Computed example of a mutant assay.
Amino acid sequence: MEISTILMSLPLGVTFVVTGLFINLIQAALYLTIRPISKNTFRKINGAIAEILWLQILCLMEWWAGIEVKLYTDLKTYHLMGKEHAVLMSNHISDMDTYILWILAQRSGCLRSALTVVKKSSKYLPIVGWASWFFGFVFLERSWAKDEGYLKTSLEELKDFPMPFWLTIFVEGTRLTPDKLLASQEFAISKGLLIQENVLIPRTKGFIATIQCLRSFVSTIYDVTIVVPKTHPIPSLLRTLRRQPWVVKVHITRYSFNELSESENEIAKWCKDKFIFKVVISCSCVVTLGGWILCHKFGKGHVFLGAILAIVAVTIHIFIEYTKLPQQIREI
């Protein structure tokens, strides 16, 4: 990691790490004391506490980096956002996607109940991963044999959620990269499916299970498409820390669960059809993925202060390593 990026990020990093560890400790205490007595009371308090941490991330994105998120939807959907339980079916272009949707959740008043289905390794990330586990994120191993039972159990636990929630599921199962797009297109050719640009073929087993488990108490699906204008690169943590602004457009179409058949095959077909339409929405965008060589070097100084700054720098380094993308070879 470039030393200039580390130095520029340290003031915010120190605040984030200190606040985040304090919040993690409070969450752990609440989990051990309040949750056994009342799960919903724990959810309400924990949501308010976690929101403090989430807002720091949003502040980093909007105030520090000056990013811009443009929402495209109809007026009815806009007024209902944050006021109803909803499943968000989104494409996945970067590891900033969750935070992009958090900006919309914060504007809609449901940031403290914005849940996400993510890969299992995410929960081991310092501070954010731990906070997400206490918050109620659903962590999957990307193996249906291992994930099916856990996913269904986690979804059933949302039945008595005390406030309107968003549950974001990235149906592609992974973020878009050149290698994954190529593999997805080769798979489509082998199965005689339509070759798609800008999105991967959705993995529908988890989506089908989500619809079936939530149908009795969730009535709405938001079909979310995140796109990047031609002149802008894919969002990344490194660009954010460098105060390099980026712009994304978020298109949301609202559907009722009643529009989906109860047939698994029909649900899968509906999902795949919506992802074909995402190609139409995103065809005006160029996906530009950046690759970086990360390194850092510190000189001697006060031992205690140096240790603190080193911990912060390592934490920042971990996040960037975890979120960095391979270099894009071609333009779409």
Rank of each mutant, 00 (worst) to 15 (best):
L182C: 03
L80F: 15
K120I: 01
G291V: 02
I226M: 02
I308T: 09
A307I: 06
A50C: 10
E141N: 08
Q106D: 14
G82N: 05
K297W: 15
K274S: 10
T153E: 11
L32P: 01
I67R: 00
H232N: 12
L155K: 09
L176P: 00
G306L: 04
Q56S: 04
K205D: 01
G291P: 00
A28I: 11
T41Y: 13
R175S: 02
I100Q: 01
I234V: 15
S122G: 04
Y322F: 13
T177I: 05
H92W: 10
K230W: 12
G149I: 02
V199M: 07
W270T: 12
E266Y: 15
T210R: 06
M163N: 05
K76M: 11
G82L: 12
H317N: 13
V17E: 02
L88I: 15
L55Q: 06
V287M: 09
P11L: 13
Q185V: 03
G206D: 03
D223P: 03
T288K: 10
V171L: 12
I23V: 15
T204C: 15
Y150P: 00
T220C: 11
V128E: 04
C110F: 12
S90P: 12
T33S: 13
A268I: 10
I6Y: 15
L10D: 09
P326K: 03
A114W: 07
M1K: 09
R142A: 02
G301I: 05
G136F: 10
G13S: 11
T41M: 12
E186T: 05
I318L: 14
V118L: 14
I234S: 10
K230S: 13
F42C: 01
L176I: 05
L325N: 06
T220F: 12
V248L: 01
F217P: 02
M81W: 10
T98C: 07
F165N: 01
L80C: 14
F170C: 02
Q328H: 08
H251D: 03
R330M: 08
T253C: 08
E197C: 01
L111G: 02
F319Q: 07
S154G: 04
V250R: 03
I26M: 13
L101Q: 08
V118G: 08
V18M: 13
I267N: 13
